[in-house]
Simulated scan of single mutants.
Amino acid sequence: MEAPTDADLIAAHRAGDQRAFGELAGRYRSRMWGIAVRMLNHPEDAADVVQEALVAAYRRAGSYRGEASVRTWLHRILVNACIDRIRHEQRRVVVPFPETEPPALRPDMAGELVTRLAVVDALAALPVAQRAAVVLVDVQGWPLDEAAGILDVPVGTVKSRCSRGRARLAVLLGHLREEEA
């Protein structure tokens, strides 16, 4: 038996199936968290926003019109929740540390950590709209048309936001190239 499609699951949820939305959320939760953590730069905030987005989607399932895929609809709710969080909270400085012991075989762990922190800080310095576009397209690998659907803007707007964001990142991270030389 084939697994139900996303559209089947949303329809089943609307019809009262208690398990359908849980299955749908399970399909996308980890990917949603990946987007949220890169946009918010804080794992706990990301977890909260994913939870808020899934609750909002659960409650708004009746208003889903099917104009976009269920996946795009869920991610649009998530990105909007991330943008709301960014706009309403004071910026926090968080230094992420690995949760497990690093392998001893990697010779330049300190350099890698410095680079990772620089990239995280640079992403956080981008305007929210550029950060959302860069995270979706360049970090998560979404196609431009799907990122445009999630952000609810034309494809050209996503391209220009990515271009401006990349240019800003190049300036903010230019010192990393100089260190390699």
Results as ranks from 00 to 15, higher is better:
E2R: 05
E2Q: 10
A7N: 15
A7R: 15
L9N: 10
I10S: 12
R14Y: 11
R19W: 14
A20E: 13
R27G: 08
R27I: 03
S30I: 05
R31V: 07
W33C: 00
G34N: 08
I35P: 07
A36G: 04
V37L: 04
V37R: 07
M39W: 08
N41A: 09
D45R: 06
A47K: 14
V49N: 12
E52W: 09
Y58R: 01
Y58D: 14
G62Q: 05
Y64W: 01
R65W: 10
G66K: 04
S69F: 06
R71E: 09
W73H: 00
R76E: 01
L78Y: 00
N80I: 06
D84S: 14
I86F: 00
E89Q: 07
V93E: 02
T100F: 02
A104V: 14
A104T: 15
R106W: 08
V114M: 04
A118P: 13
V119A: 09
V120W: 06
D121Y: 09
Q130M: 10
Q130Y: 07
V135M: 03
Q140T: 14
W142Y: 14
E146C: 10
A148K: 10
I150A: 15
D152H: 05
D152T: 03
D152Q: 09
V153R: 10
G156I: 02
G156A: 07
G156C: 02
V158M: 10
S160F: 10
C162V: 12
G165S: 07
A167R: 07
R168N: 00
L172Q: 04
